[in-house]
Design a protein around this nucleic acid. Structure first.
Lengths: 121, 121
DNA sequence: CAGTATCCGGCTTGATACTG
DNA sequence: CAGTATCAAGCCGGATACTG
C-alpha cells in the first residue's frame, strides 16, 4: 500500500489539509494574511490592527510567512526611522479564496449564534 | 471607536477569521473533519486513517468538536466491545466549503512545488 | 472497541526592555 | 519605526499503560 505524504520545511504532513494548515494555521497567521489582502501594510499598522498580538509573535509570523513565500517585505529607508511594508506575494494571493471562506464562515457563525459582542475602545 | 469582538468558549476573538480558526485550527481538527465529510466513521477508523495521531489527541479533539456542535457521537452498543460512530452535524456541514478550500489549496501546492513524496507503508 | 490516566517535553505565545 | 533579546508561562500533543 502506498500513502502520499507532503513535505514542507523539513516536516512531514499526512494529507493536503494538514499541509495547508502548516501555512495558515496557528492563532495569528490567517489573521495577518487577511489584513494584507486589501493592501500592503506597515509593521505598525498590523500591530495596531490586531491589538492583542505581541510584537514578538507578529515578527516571528511575518518572518515565517516570508520564508514560506506568502509575504514580501519591502524596506523604503536606510536609516531610522525605518519604513517597511508587507504585502502578499503572487503565491500568497492564491490563498485568498481559502482566507475568504474562513472569514465568511466566522462572520456567519457570529451573526447566527449571537456570539458577536461589541466593545468600545 | 467601536470594535467588534467574538466570543466562544469563554475566549475572545478579535475577528471572524480567528473565530473560525478556533473551530478548525490546530494540528488535527481540520483533518478529522475532512474524514467525516464523506461518511460517518468509527473511532478506530479515524485512528487508523491518521496513523500519526495519538489516541489521547484524537479523543480530546473529538470531544471538543462535539462540545462545539460540529460532530455528533453515536453509541450503538451498551457493553464492550463498544461501537461508536462519529458524524458531522448539520452545523458541522456548513464548514464543508471551508474544508474543501483548504484541501484543494494543499493539493495544488503539493503538485506545483514538488512537495509530494510517496511513502510505501 | 473505545476510550481514559498519567506523565512529560516542546512548541507557541506573551511581557517587557532594549537597539539600529 | 521596526524590530530583536530575554525570560517566563501555558497549552498542545505524544507515549504508554490501563479500564468499562
Amino acid at each position: 500500500m502506498v500513502s502520499i505524504m507532503f513535505e514542507h520545511n523539513d516536516k512531514t504532513f499526512p494529507c493536503a489539509t494538514s499541509l495547508t494548515m502548516s501555512f495558515i494555521g496557528g492563532k495569528w497567521k490567517a489573521v495577518i494574511l487577511m489584513y494584507l489582502i486589501s493592501k500592503k501594510r506597515r509593521y505598525s499598522e498590523l500591530h495596531q490592527g490586531m491589538k492583542s498580538i505581541s510584537e514578538r509573535t507578529l515578527s516571528l509570523h511575518l518572518k515565517e510567512m516570508e520564508r514560506d513565500g506568502l509575504v514580501k517585505r519591502k524596506v523604503y529607508s536606510k536609516k531610522p526611522p525605518l519604513k517597511v511594508e508587507y504585502e502578499l506575494t503572487e503565491f500568497g494571493r492564491t490563498l485568498i479564496p481559502v482566507l475568504n471562506a474562513i472569514y465568511d464562515w466566522g462572520t456567519a457563525v457570529g451573526e447566527a449564534e449571537n456570539k458577536v459582542k461589541k466593545v468600545s475602545i
